[in-house]
Design a protein around this nucleic acid. Sequence first.
DNA 1: GTCTATATTGTGATAGAC
DNA 2: GTCTATCACAATATAGAC
Lengths: 189, 189
Amino acid sequence: MAELLRVQGYAATGIQQLARTAGAPTGSIYHHFKGGKREVVAAALRQTGAVYIQLLPLLLDQHADLATGIEAAFATAADDVGHTGWANMCPVGTVTGEIADVEPELREVAAGVIASWVDEGTRYLASRGLSDADARAVTYAVLSALEGGFLLARGQRSAEPLLAAGRAISTYVATLPVTAPASAENQST
Amino acid sequence: MAELLRVQGYAATGIQQLARTAGAPTGSIYHHFKGGKREVVAAALRQTGAVYIQLLPLLLDQHADLATGIEAAFATAADDVGHTGWANMCPVGTVTGEIADVEPELREVAAGVIASWVDEGTRYLASRGLSDADARAVTYAVLSALEGGFLLARGQRSAEPLLAAGRAISTYVATLPVTAPASAENQST
DNA sequence: GTCTATATTGTGATAGAC
DNA sequence: GTCTATCACAATATAGAC
């Protein structure tokens, strides 16, 4: 479901299409998800949230310098978007834009997922030496630039927006003070 | 139509709802827009593109320093989003996310609108003293952060993402070299 | 050109046989 | 619990009277 959602969005993805893709009849879906389409989408969003949250340390731990790590992460995202035919990378972003003012329950689910990303990102960046306030601001800036970059990249069929956004955020992060030395590899202490 | 699109998105906005809102019957719409819903949406996107492109100099000319001007523009956008009950501010962003992989013709229209924004933004920022390459990169970064900030702000019902994104881009711009003195008010030369 | 009524298709959701 | 057939409704789009 998350696969379909991130490419087609909420309204364009039907339960019957999901059933065909998954090889299960529509009745079974309604048996397991009594809330119907909304509940299926909510589950997909929550699952995506839990998966994507693990990417953060995976991408950034390998770079001693936070700023270069962030720019590299955006470059990786840009590569992925290009190699998958400019399909969206984040169902949460696609769905949020579509339903934020129309489906209150789903909006709350999406908000919860994003809030968990913000919390986790803030914690991680603080462990890399940023102040708590800076860590939270950077997390929001990264998520904004990333989701917006995905949007523009899909529309323009170009990696340029994501690369430009990555360089901007990276340069911003490089100006922030860090408490630990820049070469710190032990962000767990 | 642009009004409805930016709040509800493409799929959730029906031609009959547009007819009710506009006070005109559905038949008239199909008489003037023979391409149906797609053509109406395309016209709305193009019109929005032409209107929003005028906001750029309006917002930034009043600040002698480019970086503070950009941060102020994001703050203004954040205020607007909050005062309108977290409705989206940009139909182009909402629609692009929804149809980029599903409606090729509309995707091209949206891409054209965004491309015109990039061209105009690049020209303007170059006239404010940035190199051509920097001007283009900053324009893409601003648009990415702005669209992503709108998305997160709507989802979280908070101005925080937009403000954080604005500060990030502003700080980035402040690090770039400018050819003219920072207090230049004549960006037309 | 403007508007009404309708054709047609596809949707989410359900009832009920296995 | 799994699957088939179907209901009820809303969507886009059109035909045709004024």
